Simulated assay, not measured.
Amino acid sequence: MVEALVTQAGKIAYVGNLNTAQSKYKNAAQVNLNSKTLLPGFIDPHSHFDMVSNTMGQANLNPPPVGKIDSMDK
């Protein structure tokens, strides 16, 4: 059974026994989940790739920080 999870620099460094985690990572912050489930942050890998590739030949009229347009004449 997993009792502890330790992260370092945004990556999982240890998963396992709480006593081992506490002795190996003495300065780690502790968060009690009160029997709740820990899930990883999910990253959406598809990124609408086909839509992005279709817009590559179009004028970029996006405002900063995506584009450079900050005003338009009527």
Results as ranks from 00 to 15, higher is better:
residue 22 Q to C: 11
residue 16 G to M: 01
residue 63 P to Y: 07
residue 56 M to S: 08
residue 71 S to T: 10
residue 1 M to R: 00
residue 21 A to K: 06
residue 39 L to V: 08
residue 42 F to E: 07
residue 38 L to N: 02
residue 1 M to E: 01
residue 32 N to C: 05
residue 72 M to C: 02
residue 60 N to M: 15
residue 60 N to R: 14
residue 22 Q to T: 07
residue 49 F to N: 08
residue 58 Q to N: 15
residue 44 D to H: 10
residue 41 G to D: 10
residue 56 M to D: 06
residue 60 N to W: 06
residue 48 H to R: 13
residue 10 G to W: 05
residue 44 D to I: 08
residue 58 Q to W: 09
residue 70 D to S: 14
residue 3 E to L: 01
residue 45 P to G: 15
residue 63 P to A: 10
residue 2 V to R: 02
residue 63 P to E: 08
residue 24 K to N: 13
residue 30 Q to L: 12
residue 29 A to D: 07
residue 1 M to P: 00
residue 17 N to G: 01
residue 71 S to N: 11
residue 17 N to M: 01
residue 46 H to K: 11
residue 23 S to M: 06
residue 18 L to K: 13
residue 31 V to W: 05
residue 38 L to I: 13
residue 23 S to C: 00
residue 44 D to K: 12
residue 29 A to K: 13
residue 9 A to R: 14
residue 66 V to N: 08
residue 3 E to M: 00
residue 2 V to A: 05
residue 20 T to C: 02
residue 25 Y to W: 14
residue 2 V to I: 15
residue 48 H to S: 15
residue 59 A to D: 06
residue 26 K to W: 02
residue 60 N to V: 13
residue 13 A to I: 02
residue 28 A to C: 08
residue 17 N to E: 12
residue 39 L to N: 04
residue 61 L to P: 00
residue 41 G to L: 11
residue 49 F to V: 13
residue 66 V to S: 09
residue 61 L to A: 10
residue 38 L to Y: 12
residue 68 K to E: 14
residue 46 H to D: 13
residue 20 T to P: 00
residue 44 D to G: 06
residue 22 Q to S: 11
residue 1 M to K: 02
residue 20 T to K: 12
